[in-house]
Design a protein around this nucleic acid. Structure first.
Lengths: 237, 237
DNA sequence: TAGTGGTCTAGACCACCTC
DNA sequence: AGGTGGTCTAGACCACTAG
């Protein structure tokens, strides 16, 4: 039981799931929902606004709220929502694993100095690995984490999986946002042999990961095959 | 002036622009802002929420609102915000133009039938063109528009530029949202000669464009060189 | 014209940060 | 303990849709 409006929002969502009958089915009016759930109209509005934001319903002023028809694209695989590579692989119904993990330490490069607000004297850890989906190598990932954040003994503590989850668990740092640059990659010499094997073209994701206070926490590079996993963006006004 | 909270939001944004003094400068409290602008606290909260959504500020419960430090990436070039290819090129400070425009008509393909909810008997117009940025060809675009929406005499009416703007102007249809799939392209036989010239790798954007009532209006394919234009996504929880 | 969602208000209480 | 943002309420008026 967190917030009332989140609770109501998911209860409405459940009701929508049950009544798949008509496309664009009309929801009850705000007032009716307020009576039904015994809350104020503003709370209902917050719940409905949330459902609009996640793409379940839409509203027409003066008319009502309607169920948004599905286009067959799963909303969870939208990369404008923050999720780890681990989750991306899982939401494509593949089983995630790690291969050839290497961790080492070096001085930050120029770009890392400015983006992570570090000093030349600082150290960064590089987590270098190949991610697999159901056995197949699909992503070559590199994470760049400041020693000042993860501590000197990071290599002993680290375990395979999402860096974001690691930070939550061991350092109570919550990544809530990221800026990502997307590039198409023709050939990248720095790629490990295992990833070059595949003939499929690669997408390169470069990300800056931020916590709730808008502080940059770590950087990541992901070279993703996009034959097994597909990437969608929801673009809104 | 449209909404009070939008008006106030941009006035606060202006004040932030003037006081670039300190990073993470603290804004006045909600109550102070409410007094200053002579509105209720809820209206101030709406204005501030809008500034959070566009990435200008962040808030910490129990503490206050703070100016979000810039990471050098221009927020306008985020592809999770709906914008036309025309606007993308312009916001990269390049001058947009069209080359080799071709318009023709054919029956919809299987995928188009389902995505645009058309019938086999319907027609679609294909707008095929190369977009240039400051003279250089940067995008090969294909737009797919149902005849039932743009009318039989579409070819005579069409003029170079954004399809979204065309629909607004001639048909009062407002595109407010799109679903985009991003792919890396190795080699695509269907590309015109002019686009193959460049050695740079290509990103393929496939989009479904929706109006405010969540109706699919048209489809588009864009094969974009990403050496001249860079693509960013803001990912939030 | 009646009904619906959209905006705005004023006030209450709670959760969290800071001192 | 006091101050701040987060949630919730109840009510007013406006803008728009639809019959």
């Amino acid at each position: 039981m967190s917030n009332k409006f989140i609770e109501i929002s998911s209860r409405i969502a459940k009701e929508i799931d049950l009544n798949i009958s008509a496309e664009r089915a009309k929801l009850p009016t705000e007032k009716e929902l307020a009576d039904q759930f015994q809350v104020s109209r503003e709370t209902i509005r917050k719940a409905l606004k949330h459902l609009i934001e996640v793409g379940r319903v839409y509203s027409i002023q003066g008319s009502g709220y309607y169920v948004r028809p599905s286009n067959g694209i799963r909303m969870e695989s939208m990369i404008n929502r923050y999720s780890s590579v681990t989750d991306m692989i899982r939401s494509a119904n593949l089983i995630e694993g790690d291969l050839e993990i290497q961790i080492f330490k070096r001085r930050p490069k120029e770009e890392e100095l400015t983006l992570l607000k570090l000093d030349k004297q600082d150290w960064v850890f590089i987590v270098d690995r190949i991610r697999t989906a159901s056995g197949e190598p699909v992503v070559y990932s590199q994470g760049i984490l400041p020693e000042s954040i993860v501590g000197r003994d990071f290599p002993e503590r680290f375990e395979p999986g999402s860096l974001g989850k690691y930070l939550e668990h061991y350092h109570s740092i919550h990544i809530v946002e990221a800026f990502m640059e997307i590039q198409a990659v023709r050939e990248e010499d720095s790629l490990p042999y295992r990833m070059k094997q595949s003939e499929s073209p690669l997408l390169k994701f470069f990300q800056i990961h931020y916590d709730a206070k808008a502080s940059p926490i770590f950087l990541s590079f992901d070279y993703m095959r996009n034959d097994l996993i597909r990437f969608y963006v929801r673009r809104t006004k």
